[in-house]
Amino acid sequence: MLDDLDRHILEILAGDGRISLKDLAAKVSLSSPSVSERLKRLEERGVIRAFTVEVDPAALGYALQAIVRIRPLPGQLHRVQQLIEEIPEFSECDKVTGDDCFIARLHLRSIDQLDAILDRIIDRAETNTSIVKAQPVKRRLPPL
């Protein structure tokens, strides 16, 4: 279970994962060694999995995003999953219940690229694609 101080630390890190230990300690009114120990415990418990960087795909030339619902044909589930894992433009994929087996996010340089990628799995799965217009809620922490 998280205490209020752990929650505060996580909220600060979610806003700025590159904050220095000294600045983080000052924001939560603890010493740097105390904050370091708390971070270590949060990592050991699996609460913090990684300190990472957020990259804007548009800045790398990926102007389009698509959400693709994927329903493998009978007997093709594992092969379709393998193909999704191998295609680097799939930046996220969830295996889900319901009519579809996978819901994936693609980052694309052009609409033509979408056809080329989907052609690689179309003989093994049915797909339904939506182009992302905007992302009103970015990935965020669940309530702490």
Score class of each variant (00 low, 15 high):
Y62H: 15
Y62N: 04
A63M: 12
A63R: 15
A63V: 11
A63N: 12
A63Q: 15
A63Y: 14
A63H: 14
L64Q: 07
L64P: 08
L64N: 13
L64H: 10
Q65L: 11
Q65V: 08
Q65P: 12
Q65W: 05
A66Q: 03
A66H: 02
A66Y: 01
A66V: 05
A66I: 01
V68N: 03
V68M: 08
R69L: 05
R69P: 01
I70P: 01
I70C: 03
I70Q: 02
I70D: 00
R71V: 09
P72Q: 05
P72L: 05
L73D: 13
L73A: 09
L73F: 13
P74M: 12
P74A: 08
L77R: 15
H78T: 15
H78M: 14
H78N: 14
H78R: 14
R79G: 11
R79I: 00
V80R: 05
V80C: 01
V80L: 10
Q81H: 15
Q81C: 09
Q81V: 03
Q82P: 09
Q82L: 13
Q82K: 15
I84Y: 00
I84T: 00
I84P: 00
I84R: 00
I84L: 04
I84V: 02
E85L: 13
E85R: 15
E86H: 09
I87F: 03
I87E: 00
P88C: 10
E89G: 01
E89R: 03
E89C: 03
F90H: 04
F90N: 03
S91Y: 06
S91M: 08
E92G: 08
E92K: 06
D94E: 13
D94N: 14
D94I: 15
K95E: 09
K95V: 06
V96S: 11
V96W: 04
T97E: 09
D99T: 09
D99V: 10
D99N: 12
D99C: 04
D99A: 07
D100M: 03
D100A: 08
D100K: 00
C101T: 14
C101S: 15
F102I: 00
I103G: 00
I103P: 03
A104H: 04
A104G: 05
A104C: 13
R105W: 04
R105T: 04
L106D: 05
L106A: 06
H107R: 05
H107S: 12
H107Y: 09
L108C: 06
L108N: 02
L108W: 02
R109Y: 11
R109H: 06
S110T: 02
S110Y: 13
S110P: 02
I111G: 12
I111E: 14
I111N: 14
D112A: 11
D112K: 14
D112V: 10
D112C: 12
Q113W: 06
L114S: 08
D115A: 13
D115P: 10
A116Q: 10
A116R: 15
L118A: 07
L118N: 06
L118M: 14
R120C: 10
I121M: 03
I122H: 11
I122P: 08
D123M: 11
D123I: 06
D123C: 08
D123V: 06
D123K: 08
D123W: 09
A125L: 04
A125T: 02
A125R: 02
A125E: 01
A125W: 01
T127G: 06
T127E: 04
N128K: 15
N128C: 12
T129M: 11
T129L: 10
T129W: 01
S130N: 13
S130M: 13
V132W: 06
K133A: 13
